[in-house]
Design a protein around this nucleic acid. Sequence first.
RNA 1: GCAGGGGUAGCCAAGCCCGGUCAACGGCGCAAGGCUUAGGACCUUGUCCAGAAGUGGUUCCGCGGUUCGAAUCCGCGCCCCUGCACCA
Length: 959
Amino acid sequence: MALDFARMEAKWQDAWYEARINESDPEPGRAKFFMIFAYPGVTGYLHVGHMRGYTVSDAIVRYKLMTGHNVLFPVGTHATGNGAISFARRVERRDPATVDLLTSNGCSEETLSRLTDPVEVVRFFNDVYLNDYWKRFGFMSDWRRFTSTINPDYNRFIEWQMTKLKAQDLLIQKPYFAPACVEHGPVAIDASETDILKGGSAEVLEYTLLKFDLEDGRKLVAATLRPETVFGLTNFWVNPEVEYVDAKVGDETWVVSRPAAEKLALQMDAVEVVSSADGAALMGRRCRAPFTGKMITIFPSVLCDPEVGTGLVMSVPSDAPVDWIGLVELRVDEGAKERYGITEEMIDAASPVPIIETPGYGPLPAVEVTERMGIKSLDDPRLEEATKEVYKTGFHKGVMNSSCGEFAGWAVEQAKDAVREQMIEAGAAAIFYDLSEEVLCRCGSKVFVKKIPDQWFIDYANPRLKEQSKDHARTMRILPREYHDNIQNVLEWYRERACVRLGNWLGTRFPFDRRWIVEAIADSTLYPIHYVLAKYVNDGSVSADGMTEEFFDCVLLGEGDFDSVAEMTGIDVGTLEAVRAEFEYWYPLDINLGGKEHMTVHFPVFLMNHVGLLRPEHWPRGIIVNWYITATGGKISKSKGGAQPIPDAAERFGVDAMRLFYAHIASLYVDVAWEDEKVESYRDRIERIWSFANDLVEMDDGPPADIDAWLRARMQSRLAQAHKHMEQFDVRSYANDVYFEMSHDFRWYLRRGGASKECVRDALRVWTQLMAPVTPHLAEEIWEALGMPRFVSDSQLPKAEVSDNAELEEAKERLLAALMTDISEILKVTSIEPSRMVLMTAPKWKADMLGSALREGESGADVGKLIREAMPNLSPEARKEAPAFAKAVASDVNRMSHEERRRASARIDELEVLSAAACFLKEQFGCDVTVFSADDPKRTDPKGRAKQARPGRPAVYIE
RNA sequence: GCAGGGGUAGCCAAGCCCGGUCAACGGCGCAAGGCUUAGGACCUUGUCCAGAAGUGGUUCCGCGGUUCGAAUCCGCGCCCCUGCACCA
């Protein structure tokens, strides 16, 4: 009977949502479980990788639902930012890839024409996520609570959040340096290049500008990343072929390249270009270095790029390979020397000065490295590599030497900041930000780093907030464990974070200055709350207009009285009471699950905003981080393609197969490559279970047997394990037991002659229930075949009842299985075709001795004592064996772990068990099987195997 | 730069926090047997090496250490990877 997955999925989803088992309202007194996954940003279609975390969330939620919890599992979308805007722009200009993407996903021309509006884009994808992804996967989500961050009610919520942050003194203003287009304001620089045409991998570099005094009072301004190397300055580099400018900066005149002057003007007040300055005219002149006051000479270098830094470079040949090779080349460049009046003496005076002791190098690492690599020319591409090598070791491991004044003996890393601070304080230096490579805005113009003088920040550096958050995080359920520990460091490292931005973005206007839009991370920190509110907004009982500060203060903080708030907001008292009660019921959030990209961004601010604004009893209780599903060649990427559309995959593999894949393929905390064959093999597994379950349902009833008790016992211990795994959110182990181990249990039962229909049905019912969290559609189908009413999805999983008797039943089958393994081993090694098999169970005195050794417990068994105890009652033959056996038992027992002791303690009558199983063994091995006790005089034992018998390990004789 | 993760048998991947149940879960692949007209599917068994008796040997990146005992703990080394820095 083949499974029609699509039909089965639709059938059950319709039925669940029709019966509204996915909806949840407060039930005072009943335990609740509130879980969300981090809502996705609206930037286009999602791919199969995204469904991993969502599916695991749903499995957890479904399990909670089946263990008595009132479950809240709402979903929404994060539309803040420019994702939808840039998508709409691509549609507008008929970008072929975008149009193709849409039409191949079944989007009509009419819809396409609507999607030039960003708000329509959000609306469109909200539907796609909801219907094609989450409902298509059968999630137990309360759809009435759907929300999106550009809804007016959500805007009110964020305004309130910002208001409260300000009231808590957690909003501060200070200057900020951000990449920006002159035309379009701030842009985001990221690898997916949503804002930009070019330069996604650029970084903002923090240069130190050092001012070198010329005799005429002007200042040559060099940009460096290594200000601490001022001690090793020997000369200055200026490009004679470049036009420089004199620029007035405050009351100083700086010489920099023209592009640098333009960039400086974006970052400093009152920068004014007054005249052009000729680079060539500076050659051979002298300038005074900042800090050390050393006089150095200006040399020509065509390597000074006017677009990089200030276009002027200071020279530290001891530690900068480029500077060293520059000097080497200059020395032999007669033309240049003559043209610019550079003398040998000048070059001699620029000899490298050792300043940093670098482990593994002599005093002049740059000289050493270039010589070792055989670099002789500035054209040598390996110069970059050489520079990296010297900088890396020098910066991280180097120590300033004795020529560095008060900094002698300092680690370079520390000296850098200290030297810079001192120079800035002395007016000899300034900070300058620049991009590491060219970045172009979508409009085509260049992006620069621009000073934003009045940027707003959320003050995550606030010590009280930080400490409270760290303390609370320690008490939270955070998985994986590594992140539970690491989040302490992340919180510690958190600083102020820009929380609003200028420019054309979707989002909430900043209540204290409407020009700004609340930034995308800052508006998604408290949002689990909004799912509670959204139910009332979506059903019309609360309108966005009514969501004033008083409203939120009232329902979320318990402030104000209902009557006056009702009057102010126009929301009736009953509704206000209900909203507050509902918030109090569901909050705090139990689990927030999200991808690993959230570890250093969303999760910390999610936590800190809760701690900063809400009462402690509402702080979140748990975080689960999921790693990614990757494409075989690397990351699945929307921009780079290769992403399999979710509905297509669902059609091809079946939703349950995908759900099982996500749940079982690996722990949540590793990346896993998506492979079609893997998913197919899970689909096969589902089909196999389906057909097996059908066989079980339809099997003929047979007589009761001993093995029935085993199957019942087995189900109970499986159930116990399953609960244990799920309580720890270990979905992978849970799935492993349910989908792989448990089918073996049923097979073993049948193989051992089990035939009780009632017993099988009881067990199958439990098995089906255990499948429901991960593969709910399959489970419902089996549930129905079992003739069970309603849904397995809202049935209650029984608690496990593991009795001592159940332990014994399991121990019996364990004995048999172990014995069969031993027999197989013997057969394999000896290649005997068995015709007769004699099994001899350990004599009673051995079992007694093991028992008494086990009773000694953790303290350890004593060989002498075991022997003394046993001797009086032993037969003469046994007396001969006893000492050796006692020794073996003592050493075995003393090495056993808890679990082993527990198992070994199960006292079963082996003779009886094996006698009852003789028939079965005969069938299995196709030979005659007889069973004796090892001390039975009637036994057949030509090879004298009997004395090998140990409890749990009967002696075997085969011929 | 800041903060982290990892290297396990042919492949994927558990185990590592809490050392002994570990030749190391499970899956895939492969092999043998069963079932079947045949093939597929399915079931059972096996899959580091040796072995005519249930055993022994050698393994969990490398080296060293702690321990009666280490895949698991500690140190050093080699190699690989991730997240973040107003994309979300």
